[in-house]
């Protein structure tokens, strides 16, 4: 995949846990335009090991001079966000992928309902710039833990006016999914990005209230789960790769110099799908791409987030 060489031109502390980073092309040229909801994958060299995390571009989508992302520091994570917070300064050079959009608005919708939890607000920042430009009806519902964690609240009030609604957990103002979903006009689409539990319950509630699947869009950037180490045997290239417990299958393949396909690195897009020829244990699927039936049939795996409880797995690569 062709990568963009960028330099960090600004770092801003947004809340205690959230920092915003601005990137421009190293040689000063124009960046590719992107659509609302797009993300880039940032490659980080952490102690000689390449770590890749996906972050939403925040827009505005009309700006092709610079990209901005926001990163929440996850203390118990595998180091990507800590690296961004502690090592990345103005002037730091990084490599990013061109933007990819797996969370675009549906332009045929009659109304857009955007639901964000915490740092899940980031993809909506650019979606809102698209929605405002197109003049489409929308409402944004943004939940966060406490007043001091209300990242981008002032900016949202300016951008969205009375279309934005805030829900503050520790003030007892909670979002009520049933209220959000009931009596919405035909042709509405709902988009949710936030913690796992929030996304899962909203998606489930929408289903129970008769919303068709294709009107419900969700995005969760899953960090690859850790687990037991195992060996991946590549049947086509006739090599074996050891997957350590704290590394994803995809990362281990990349570490071994194998050019494995990938796009979202979050179990959403299906690009990295590998065919499992044999496995002497059990596959542990963490992706949201494969259907339940495909997961049970155990002959496909998304190496970006999924792994196995086995000693040896053979894949067609």
């Amino acid at each position: 995949m062709s990568l963009l060489n960028v330099k960090v031109t600004a770092v801003e502390q947004i809340t205690e846990q959230v920092k915003q980073f601005t990137f421009e092309l190293e040689d000063g040229g124009k960046l590719p335009y992107f659509s609302g909801g797009s993300h880039v994958v940032v490659a980080m060299d952490i102690d000689g090991r390449i770590h890749r995390n996906a972050y939403s571009l925040m827009g505005p989508t009309s700006d092709n001079e610079r990209y901005t992302i926001a990163v929440r520091k996850q203390e118990q994570s595998r180091g990507g966000s800590v690296f961004m917070h502690e090592q990345v300064k103005p002037g730091t050079r990084l490599q990013i992928t061109p933007p990819t959009n797996l969370f675009a608005i549906n332009k045929l919708a009659k109304k857009h309902i955007l639901v964000a939890g915490g740092i899940g607000i980031t993809p909506f920042m650019s979606q809102i710039s698209d929605l405002n430009r197109l003049g489409y009806p929308y409402e944004l519902h943004y939940a966060y833990r406490s007043a001091d964690q209300a990242a981008f609240r002032d900016q949202l009030e300016k951008l969205c006016g009375d279309k934005v609604h805030f829900y503050v957990d520790d003030e007892g103002r909670r979002m009520n999914f049933t209220e959000l979903l009931i009596q919405q006009p035909l042709g509405s689409h709902i988009y949710v990005c936030g913690p796992n539990t929030m996304v899962n319950s909203l998606v489930l509630m929408a289903k129970q209230m008769g919303w068709p699947d294709n009107a419900v869009h969700s995005e969760k950037f899953l960090a690859p789960a850790t687990g037991e180490p195992f060996v991946v045997s590549l049947s086509l290239s006739e090599t074996e790769v050891m997957v350590p417990g704290e590394m994803s299958m995809l990362e281990a393949l990349e570490e071994a110099g194998i050019d494995a396909p990938y796009l979202c690195r979050g179990g959403a897009c299906g690009r990295c799908e590998l065919e499992v020829v044999d496995c002497d244990g059990e596959l542990i699927h963490h992706d949201v791409y494969l259907s339940d039936a495909e997961k049970i049939s155990a002959n496909k795996i998304m190496p970006c987030v999924s792994r196995a409880n086995c000693s040896r797995m053979v894949v067609n690569l």
């Binding site: 009931i182 009596q183 919405q184 006009p185 035909l186 509405s188 209230m209 008769g210 919303w211 009107a215």
Partner: peptide, 10 residues
């Protein structure tokens, strides 16, 4: 009829 229909109508 559609004027009084909302999301969740089959």
């Amino acid at each position: 009829t559609l004027d009084s229909c909302y999301m969740g109508t089959q």
